[in-house]
Design a binder for these strands. Sequence first.
DNA 1: GTCTATATATAGATAGAC
DNA 2: GTCTATCTATATATAGAC
Lengths: 215, 215
Amino acid sequence: MSSAGAAPAAGEPARPAAREARTRLRREEIVAAAARIFATAGYHNVGMRDIADAVGIRGASLYHHFPSKEEILYAVCLSVTREPNEENLLLLDAPGTPSQRMAALVRAHLRHLHRRRVEHLVGLHELNSLAPEHRAEIDGYRRYYQRRVRDVVVAGVRTGEFRVPDARLAAFGLLDMLNGISNWFHDDGVLGLEQVVDGYVELIVGRMLGSSGPY
Amino acid sequence: MSSAGAAPAAGEPARPAAREARTRLRREEIVAAAARIFATAGYHNVGMRDIADAVGIRGASLYHHFPSKEEILYAVCLSVTREPNEENLLLLDAPGTPSQRMAALVRAHLRHLHRRRVEHLVGLHELNSLAPEHRAEIDGYRRYYQRRVRDVVVAGVRTGEFRVPDARLAAFGLLDMLNGISNWFHDDGVLGLEQVVDGYVELIVGRMLGSSGPY
DNA sequence: GTCTATATATAGATAGAC
DNA sequence: GTCTATCTATATATAGAC
């Protein structure tokens, strides 16, 4: 965006904006394919050639889009860690009681885990293979998310809607419970996503946090 | 054990039983060191030389004790997956109400996760690197454990002690919540282990499952 | 049971043509 | 932007002496 200064000349092989869009699509295509393969086989069991095969190009061509394999992993982890911070946390700022805001977050969180299931699996299991600075950045996002969730628990305790032995403990527990579904949920299982969503809202907000509603 | 048939001759350099015991100690020493390093750096970021260094021998010497690096990982995963099945599940067969048995399991589970924290981290994150047949065996143990936990939830629902929307969902949720502590608990944190244990028993048995005790 | 020395395979990354 | 060809580093694993 910031580098699109000059207007494109008429006879160029492709207008910069269009070319940029296509390049970006290619990048996202690579990230999506890599996430899928990383999630099932594990980062280190996957070669650049495997990723390239999935996109239909040769291994060396990947280096036109990413400087290293680790940068691909970073792109996978970053997207899936950022998005919940940008999307789900908005729901905590919206009007409503702590019960309502927490229920909205649980729903959004589970749906995001489902929508980007493979990316989340990578983000949960392969953080060790990130470069230290990348790892630190990802960890920062996660800690912030966690803190915001804990704050809602605290808010609910203050209003008397929630009754928990310890807000930090409850926040850790409910987040682990949410994130855990990446490891066992399958679309062809006995429970559909929306059943899990409704069940977890009840288990977490209604029971664990002790809210009597409405939410 | 089954191969210790003949009685040892007097002048042997070491009595077979003693030698076996020492060899076994060495194996366990290697497994323990490997678990520690795998947990912090990730299986594939660790070389045989790193493991050997931690034990004070050369990389090649490890192959006297294990036929491959994967077998070391398998030993780590197996020990930590078997033990809960052999120890914790006994508590589910003991006399007592479902509430009491579930509370006992939660306590034992959390204490085991703590006692063998690094091994659990490996068992949770590195399953992708196991040979298929080893992976299948580990998965089998985990599925059985999960089923037994679910059965207690079902039993509690039947007695009327527990009230949950879906027993499977509750079992998945509580197990994910329990296992999650491996990722965030530290001995030098603000909460001690027994505080977490007591808090989680309350959150899970008392609130999530809705038992009014005693447990 | 541990050592030194080394075989061997693989995979991340680069060079340069098209 | 993708290709072919190749470099190079690393690490698992083996051979055989002590």
